[in-house]
Amino acid sequence: MQYLTFLLGSLLAMLGYREPQGQTSIVRVNGEQSVLSRTTVSGGQARFQCLQSDSGNCFYRLYREQCRDEAAGELCRRQALDDFSVVVGGVREVQGLPAGFGQQVRAREAQRRD
């Protein structure tokens, strides 16, 4: 799968395809189950792409961390923004997320602790 992703990216680059400017992160998690996900944030829009998952879905949790006094060693609290899943090969676009939002991605649905 890694080689296929690399070859496809190289082919698109040779054809002149360029992604819009922004921040792209690729997350690969191995453990009981593995997941490979790609997130691109550009111009106030986030694009979540599930590339590979043993369960057939990537489960996302979006959050914002709120820290009062990091210098004093105070723990940060996470405010949940959204939970959703994307099937392997699928894409979901989300608008209106705060700058610097965080994400977790898993191969299995996480239990909520709100």
Score class of each variant (00 low, 15 high):
22 G>Q: 05
98 P>A: 00
84 F>M: 03
75 L>H: 10
103 Q>T: 07
100 G>K: 06
47 R>G: 01
47 R>V: 10
38 R>S: 09
108 R>L: 01
106 R>Q: 06
82 D>K: 13
109 E>Y: 05
55 S>R: 03
44 G>E: 04
88 V>H: 04
82 D>I: 04
57 N>Y: 11
29 V>H: 14
87 V>N: 09
26 I>W: 09
94 V>H: 02
102 G>P: 09
72 A>V: 02
22 G>L: 06
23 Q>D: 13
17 Y>E: 12
61 R>Y: 06
2 Q>E: 14
20 P>K: 11
19 E>M: 14
11 L>A: 15
34 S>H: 13
40 T>A: 10
61 R>E: 10
61 R>L: 09
24 T>M: 08
51 L>W: 02
3 Y>E: 14
29 V>W: 12
113 R>N: 09
55 S>K: 04
99 A>C: 00
47 R>C: 07
90 G>Y: 04
59 F>H: 12
45 Q>V: 12
50 C>K: 07
80 A>T: 10
33 Q>L: 13
21 Q>M: 12
103 Q>G: 07
43 G>Y: 03
6 F>R: 14
47 R>W: 02
68 R>F: 07
8 L>A: 13
58 C>M: 01
48 F>H: 03
71 A>M: 07
73 G>R: 00
13 A>H: 13
114 D>P: 12
3 Y>T: 12
30 N>A: 14
64 R>V: 04
4 L>Y: 15
18 R>G: 13
60 Y>D: 05
44 G>H: 02
2 Q>N: 13
44 G>C: 01
33 Q>E: 13
48 F>L: 01
5 T>C: 11
50 C>Q: 07
20 P>C: 08
110 A>T: 09
98 P>L: 00
77 R>F: 05
97 L>W: 02
7 L>I: 11
81 L>H: 00
81 L>S: 02
109 E>F: 05
33 Q>K: 14
32 E>L: 11
105 V>F: 06
88 V>T: 11
98 P>I: 00
22 G>T: 10
5 T>E: 12
38 R>V: 05
103 Q>H: 10
96 G>S: 08
86 V>Q: 02
46 A>H: 09
88 V>F: 00
14 M>N: 14
64 R>N: 03
109 E>G: 06
26 I>F: 10
8 L>H: 13
11 L>S: 15
48 F>N: 05
13 A>V: 12
65 E>S: 12
65 E>C: 07
30 N>Q: 14
37 S>K: 04
86 V>P: 09
107 A>W: 03
113 R>H: 08
102 G>K: 05
55 S>Y: 05
41 V>P: 06
111 Q>A: 10
